[in-house]
């Protein structure tokens, strides 16, 4: 492909993304394996039993979960500490929304993804999408959930971790587990969409590829992230 490519993700970002993906996946599986209770088993008793057999007992499973969680949180903490500017930029980006156009984008995107252009037409909507920046609104929503959820998960996780080390009251651990589980559940619901959009749908295939290469085609950028493209173009002009 001879099209001009635009740099979208640094190597560190790409690493952090996949590191995060791995941790989430592992933490989700081990965490799910930790729930072993007739009234709670989200997927049935076979799963925690299987995980315990694989790990040689619930205590090992817990330990892997706890320390992996600490490594995961630690890596992000390091990122935040050493890449303050990038962190700030990222947060600013994902938490900046223009409600009117973004909501419209969301509605349109939903219709488009489930019913196609006909769906848009059926509701009397034009096929063009409201322009999106570096992240589209869907990505922003998921990023917001990940950031907020991540903080909640880390905090509640730490409470549970320190419960038997230094906490004299069992209450916080009990409630932390409830919140931990709820948050993971909600973020996981978003994650399913994220995975589909990024890895399965054709729509965002270039974005998925950029999570390996770091670059997207100018065409894709202009089409999917026009505001970002415009910004990049301006900066480029300046540089030129």
């Amino acid at each position: 492909m001879n099209e001009r490519m635009i740099h979208r993700h640094t190597r560190l970002s790409i690493f952090m993304h996949w590191f995060n993906a791995f941790c989430w996946f592992a933490l989700l599986l081990t965490g799910l394996g930790l729930i072993k209770n007739e009234q709670l088993n989200p997927v049935g008793a076979w799963f925690p039993s299987l995980m315990r057999s694989l790990f040689g007992g619930g205590e090992n499973l817990l330990m892997v979960h706890q320390y992996l969680g600490l490594i995961w949180a630690g890596a992000f903490l390091a990122y935040v500490l050493f890449k303050r500017r990038e962190t700030w930029a990222f947060l600013k980006e994902v938490f900046t929304v223009s409600p009117a156009s973004d909501m419209l984008w969301l509605v349109k995107m939903n219709l488009k993804m489930t019913m196609g252009r006909k769906g848009l037409q059926r509701f009397g909507l034009t096929p063009d999408m409201p322009p999106q920046g570096f992240y589209n609104f869907g990505q922003k929503l998921f990023a917001q959930a990940s950031v907020v959820g991540g903080v909640v998960i880390v905090v509640t996780g730490l409470v549970m971790f320190f419960s038997t080390i230094s906490m004299d009251n069992p209450g916080p651990a009990a409630w932390s587990r409830v919140i931990h589980y709820l948050t993971v559940g909600v973020v996981f619901a978003g994650l399913l969409v994220h995975i589909f959009m990024a890895a399965i749908s054709r729509e965002e295939r270039p974005a998925f590829m950029s999570m390996f290469t770091g670059n997207v085609s100018e065409h894709y950028a202009r089409h999917h992230h026009p505001l970002w493209h415009a910004q990049v173009a301006t900066e480029k002009d300046k540089d030129d």
């Binding site: 057999s53 790990f55 040689g56 007992g57 205590e59 090992n60 330990m63 038997t164």
Partner: peptide, 14 residues
């Protein structure tokens, strides 16, 4: 029924 791997982890709380 504590499985084999336990030998590698802290036994204080087991």
């Amino acid at each position: 029924g504590v499985p084999a791997l336990k030998g590698y982890v802290s036994s204080a709380h087991a």
